[in-house]
C-alpha cells in the first residue's frame, strides 16, 4: 500500500480524504484484489485519527463496492474486472465533475470556455 496523508487543516472531512486516497489507489490498480486492509482500530491508531472516521471511510468504500468485509477477518479489496474498475472510475469522475461544473456555472462561464480551459490545463498536467 502506498502512503496515506491526512490533513487536519483541510476543509475536506478526514473520512473523505481517507476514502479518496484509498479508492484512487484501488481504481488505479495499485492495490491487489483480496488485499487485506488494516483493521479499523489499527488503522485509526496508525493514522492517528478517530476510529469512527476510519469506520466511516471503510463503510463508504464498501457501499461503493470497492471493498468487502468478512466477519472476524476484516476488509478486503474487491475482485473487480477491468471493465468494472473503469465503470467505477467513471462514476466517481462524473460525481466530481458535476460538482465542479456547478461551481463554474455559478461563476457564469460558458461550456465552450470550460472545454477550452480544460484542454489548456490538461496539456499542462500531462507535461508535469
Amino acid at each position: 500500500m502506498r502512503g496515506i496523508s491526512i490533513s487536519n487543516k483541510s476543509n475536506k472531512p478526514i473520512y473523505q480524504q481517507l476514502f479518496e486516497q484509498i479508492s484512487s489507489q484501488i481504481l488505479k490498480g495499485e492495490l491487489e484484489s483480496d488485499f487485506n486492509l488494516p483493521a479499523i482500530r489499527t488503522a485509526a491508531k496508525e493514522l492517528r485519527i478517530s476510529i469512527i472516521t476510519v469506520k466511516k471511510a471503510w463503510e463508504k468504500l464498501e457501499r461503493d463496492g470497492l471493498i468487502y468485509s468478512v466477519a472476524g477477518k476484516g476488509c478486503f479489496i474487491s475482485d473487480l474486472s477491468n471493465n468494472e474498475l473503469g465503470n467505477k472510475r467513471t462514476n466517481i469522475i462524473r460525481k466530481q465533475m458535476l460538482k465542479d461544473l456547478l461551481f463554474y456555472k455559478n461563476l457564469g462561464i460558458s461550456e465552450d470556455e470550460i472545454i477550452k480551459l480544460v484542454k489548456e490545463l490538461y496539456s499542462k498536467v500531462l507535461s508535469c
Binding site: I14, Y15, R48, I49, S50, I51, K56
Partner: peptide, 23 residues
C-alpha cells in the same frame, strides 16, 4: 483531541453544549 478522540463532550459554564462524535 483532533488526533485521537472519537467522541467529544463540550461543557461550558456548567452545562453540556455538545456530546457527539468528533466528526
Amino acid at each position: 483531541l483532533e488526533k485521537c478522540a472519537d467522541y467529544i463532550t463540550y461543557i461550558n459554564n456548567g452545562r453540556i453544549i455538545e456530546s457527539t462524535t468528533k466528526d
